[in-house]
Write a protein that binds this DNA or RNA. Structure first.
Lengths: 194, 194
DNA sequence: TTAATATACGGAGGCTCCCTCCGTTTTGCA
DNA sequence: TGCAAAACGGAGGGAGCCTCCGTATATTAA
């Protein structure tokens, strides 16, 4: 299960792992306190490590953000099979979209970085954006097969819409707005015998 | 018609007006060439003026962006009465949404600054965001009255969706994606006798 | 025309942030 | 216990943001 190249590798250093976690925690609270534009130096400061350490663990701001929201993305992905078991496919899709808004609502930072990433598939391994794309693709495919939604739906389109709808500024009943829009979208998606 | 305070004012200086226009032009090409993150100093350089001059005319990056896209916003707003004359209200709304995507597509910068502004109504005079909000409100109201779309629609919600849908990254068939989504949205909006 | 003055200009400078590089420190392993 | 490998820290160069103020120029009145 462990990755193992041609040569045997050392056990990873304890301080490295610890600092990585400290950084992620600091980033999480930093983003929450000071918005998406906290300086990386501020994050390093909060974590009590040098800026160099931050950059060693996360080569870019993107990478930091991704590490922070990776958890939520995983939960979002894991919810799919369960939803498909307990609900008809169309309903599963609908519920998942609301779930998406939930996660976006708590952590305000998924949307922006997701928005930038939806199109691209260049990354070597599975990026969060790709994971989510797969999740929604599964849901859409099922819903199309079961006849719950029209078949001319591109899952990426839908994801884009979802991200877009979740993009608004934090204040002013943003979340309920997103929820209303999802319901409208869903109405547009359904097969209405036409 | 001219603004005139208690004291009579001087004629505004010619160089000021000229520089302002140079700056707007430079910003327009600058945004097009180098993306939304061109430095303001670069814009000033392109315009052949000092950075101080830029800041005197436009107190913030936001203001620069707004000046650049003001034209498109105005056209978007002006299209409303015409659309309402030539099409049934529901269709007018639909067409206007496509028009919106058109303008966004050519100038890639309306969406971001609009996204930040949709909620707020704090500004003293009519901001572009408010102008657009008014435009879409008119269209929605008409469409609701004529029975073309359901009545539980908040125009701001719809604008948010429009902005969101138009937010994607430039590459990769973004525009057609936005158009498909608009059609789906519109299907969701229509009164379907239920 | 010319002088007076309101108005606008330019860019140096102080600040913050980004990111790299390398001397120092810590950790895992033998 | 000793020795590399691995990780740390933060100084420093570069860039962008924005302000401030001495200088330049347009407008107006004489």
């Amino acid at each position: 299960m462990k990755q193992k190249a041609t040569a045997q590798t050392r056990k990873p250093r304890a301080d490295s792992a610890r600092n990585r976690q400290l950084l992620i925690d600091a980033a999480k609270t930093g983003f929450a306190d000071a918005g998406l534009n906290v300086s990386l130096e501020e994050i390093a400061r909060r974590a009590g490590v040098g800026i160099g350490t931050l950059y060693r663990h996360f080569p870019s701001r993107e990478a930091v953000v991704e590490a922070v929201y990776r958890r939520e993305v995983e939960q979002l992905v894991e919810a799919v099979p369960q939803l498909l078991e307990t609900s008809p496919a169309g309903e599963a899709l609908h519920q998942w979209m609301h779930l998406f808004v939930n996660y976006i609502a708590t952590k305000r930072l998924i949307a922006p970085s997701l928005a930038a990433a939806v199109g691209r598939t260049s990354a070597p391994h599975a990026t969060p954006a790709e994971l989510i794309t797969r999740a929604i693709s599964t849901l859409v495919k099922n819903a199309v097969r079961s006849g719950d939604v029209r078949k001319d739906i591109d899952p990426s389109d839908l994801l884009r819409a979802l991200v877009g709808v979740s993009y608004g500024n934090p204040d002013a009943g943003w979340e309920s707005s997103a929820r209303r829009l999802i319901d409208i979208l869903m109405d547009g998606l359904r097969c209405k015998g036409r």
